[in-house]
Amino acid sequence: MTALTAKPWVWSFAAAILVWVITVLFTGGSSSVGLSQATLTFAAFSVIVGIGQMFVITLGPGNIDLSVPATMTLSGTLALKVMDVQDSMIALGLLIAILVGVAIGIGNYALIKLLRIPPIIATLSMSFIVQSCAIWTNRGLRIKPPETLSDFTTSYSFGVPNVALVALVLSLAAWFLLEKTTYGRWISAIGQSSFAARMAGIPVDGTRFITYVLCAVLAAVAGYLLASFSGGAALNMGAEYLLMSIAVVVIGGTAVAGGNSNVPGIWGASLFMFLVVSMLNTYGFGAGVRLILTGLIIIAVILAAGGRRVAR
């Protein structure tokens, strides 16, 4: 039991289950299946971007990627444009999305490394440029996703949303990468002490470079899926994922000071964040009260779960 409560991700799952029970009880149990499926669907997008953000935050203080929303928008827009409603182009569309991610990741790290700009400002400036590119490509009508792709993203396998399965596969890969590979150990080592890592012969720059690219690629894939899921790319479709990607990482129990990450917590936190919104919706609160309660609940979770670790 003590071993279980010592895991930082337990708290986010406990909170998610609590909110789920409260919401289901309020509706008299009738909504349990629908609510679970909706939660899994929307949490999946937060999980995918959250994992990327988690890798970056693990690199240590100051590392953060603010270009996530712009990357999602640009990859969704470009991929849908290239696919042009043809089923045969789905794979090419995914490839385009991934290439967009790679390009933005390279750009981000070039600014950070070559121009020595703090990551928060570098990725912010980058996101401005990417956003402009998205506005420029998005000219004209909203392009629909190919039929097969849109069916895939909106349907279920064994009662589980397909996007949630994709997120699960990506999380398993991320978990393996973090816990079982040298690369994962390197990230944690750099996050704990960049200087010590360099002295130990870890290729710090290469590792950081890969991590920023990985984060951008995951954001691009999330954008590709989200655009297909919602029937077209919109210019503001990534907006809410800026705060969301950071919030799920931290609520999930990843140390903000870096060097310590965990994948399960991202799931707990993503489920929790969506459940809170739907709980407040079920209770029929207005937009203002809903926002206030969301904020207070986030702070309450941080107060309950955090504080034992030294943050800075």
Partner: peptide, 30 residues
């Protein structure tokens, strides 16, 4: 005070507060 006493990351606490202030603003001027 809370950030200092509980050693919380300021980014997250202020992130939560941004929802609170946003909600209050919407209540004042929908």
């Amino acid at each position: 005070v809370v950030i200092h006493l509980r050693q919380l990351p300021s980014i997250v606490v202020t992130l939560g507060m941004s929802f609170v202030w946003g909600g209050l603003a919407v209540l004042l001027l929908p």
